[in-house]
Design a protein around this nucleic acid. Structure first.
Length: 234
DNA sequence: GTTGAGCGTT
């Protein structure tokens, strides 16, 4: 819904759309309306919102009936402090269906070169496809990156404690890629198992390896005991 | 609850 059109937007042709950028996320059409109406006949005010949360996306469209009035609003309102922020007012460049606009007014430059070779309902497919792609591209700019990027960062730090995975790793492990602990493959040699025969369970913990390595280097008499222990073993 | 380049209908 827009500010003035209770039943859908008023006819968009023959109006001059202004794009109002940099308004706060709390500014509503009602806040903008008195401001812009001072300079002419405002046909409609529309603030795009998040479809889920309903939050403002931080800009608005103000449509004037006459170009001179729209132009005047640009001159007077561009750079004006509204709700603590300097708004930017300019003529809109694109319409709801990505039609080109000149001076805020839609120019009928609809893609006519796509021909009629499409036999089956090309209109709906093209439109929906465009709008969906556009929607997700735009939404992923500032607000939506919160939950997702935050999560991704945490996940990244968690799994990068041991080593970094190559794209090949992900491809090989496929859906299992979320549990890296399983693939922590140290690849023990037979020698490893022989040296710690008494703890010989299946897979010795990693920290044992780190602890024992220096010990072996420090004890100079260790090899002697090992020799005694190993010799009569057969 | 956070945000900040851009172009559109509940």
């Amino acid at each position: 819904m827009s500010r003035f059109g209770r039943s859908g937007p008023p006819p968009i042709r023959d109006t001059y759309s202004l794009l109002v950028l940099n308004i706060t996320f709390r500014t509503t059409a009602d806040d903008l309306s008195p401001l812009f109406e001072k300079y002419g006949e405002v046909v409609d005010i529309y603030i795009p919102r998040d479809r889920r949360t309903g939050d403002s996306r931080g800009f608005a469209f103000v449509r004037y009936k006459y170009e001179e009035e729209a132009q005047k609003a640009v001159d007077r309102l561009d750079g004006k402090l509204v709700d603590g922020r300097e708004i930017m007012v300019q003529f809109a460049k694109y319409g709801p269906n990505a039609e080109r606009i000149q001076k805020g007014r839609i120019m009928e430059t609809v893609p006519r070169s796509r021909g009629r070779s499409r036999s089956r309902s090309p209109r709906r497919g093209y439109r929906d496809d465009y709008r969906d792609r556009d929607y997700y591209r735009k939404r992923s700019r500032s607000r939506d990156r919160y939950g997702r990027d935050r999560y991704r960062e945490r996940d990244y730090h968690r799994r990068s404690r041991s080593r970094s995975y190559t794209p090949d790793d992900y491809r090989r492990r496929g859906r299992d890629s979320r549990s890296p602990s399983r693939s922590r493959s140290h690849s023990y040699t037979p020698d490893d198992y022989r040296k710690r025969g008494k703890h010989s369970s299946s897979a010795p913990p990693v920290h044992r390896l780190r602890k024992e390595a220096p010990v072996r280097r420090l004890r100079k008499e260790a090899p002697v005991r090992r020799l005694h222990a190993e010799a009569p073993d057969k």
